[in-house]
Design a protein around this nucleic acid. Structure first.
Lengths: 129, 129
DNA sequence: CTGTATCCGCCGCGATACTG
DNA sequence: CAGTATCGCGGCGGATACAG
């Protein structure tokens, strides 16, 4: 029971929901985590792409641009030929990396228990043709 | 390429991704958090519904059933008239509450900084003739 | 190398109505 | 009170082709 808390619990724009919204898109947290853990906060497009097997080029760039629009990453362009573009975590991005790393650390620590987790039936199910 | 290339850290079923998948559905974390924080881990359907303004009855029950199928909540039925159904966090559910509470605590602590977070334009491109 | 433009299937999720 | 059944839409996200 927290002090004076819950007159309006779940406003659409409350802090927890805004954070969770970031997790709602498939690649967001993986990109931020990869940027942080494997590229020291900055990476070129192709390098990032190679670090994220399974992502399509379209979703990579689309998600990066959305992150840029959100203020979480900065896009830097070297006007050379061929062009060299880098994406770097902004200060706000480095902050958002915190909860992401929490989740990753927790998940790895509890990987064993997570094996008990059964998959949801409604989620992606393959059809047998 | 080498067979043991280190990019296998993103397997579809690795622990971090399985956790993130839970966050990918809109109401999952809110339900678990509400169950934990406002109902001591157990609540009847209507009570939960009242604690989650904005959710539709359909999504409430659907999500609860998915959580049950995942092994995170247990469904208890009192065969009375009218029926009384309760949903309770399972041991695994209580475990999964941990990362959720981490996120919520972090979000509240950093609510100020989160104001800097710009919303992404929910649709990138509308058809404009 | 980096990015844009379509086309398109799938499904999350809300609204509504109905059952027991 | 608890739950099911339908319908419909928006949009995520993949495949592919094209461009600077």
């Amino acid at each position: 029971m927290q002090p004076g808390s819950d007159e309006e619990l779940w406003r659409e724009d409350c802090a927890p929901r805004r954070v969770l919204e970031l997790f709602s898109t498939k690649w967001t947290s993986m990109i931020l985590h990869t940027l942080h853990a494997r590229h020291q906060g900055i990476a070129r497009t192709g390098s990032l792409h190679r670090s994220l097997p399974g992502i399509s080029k379209k979703m990579l760039i689309q998600t990066l641009r959305e992150l840029e629009a959100s203020g979480l990453v900065e896009r830097h362009v070297q006007d050379t030929v061929p062009p060299a573009v880098s994406y770097a975590l902004s200060p706000l991005g480095n902050l958002m990396v915190q909860p992401i790393e929490m989740i990753y650390a927790w998940a790895r620590t509890n990987a064993g228990a997570l094996d008990q987790l059964r998959e949801r039936p409604t989620s992606r199910r393959k059809r047998s043709p």
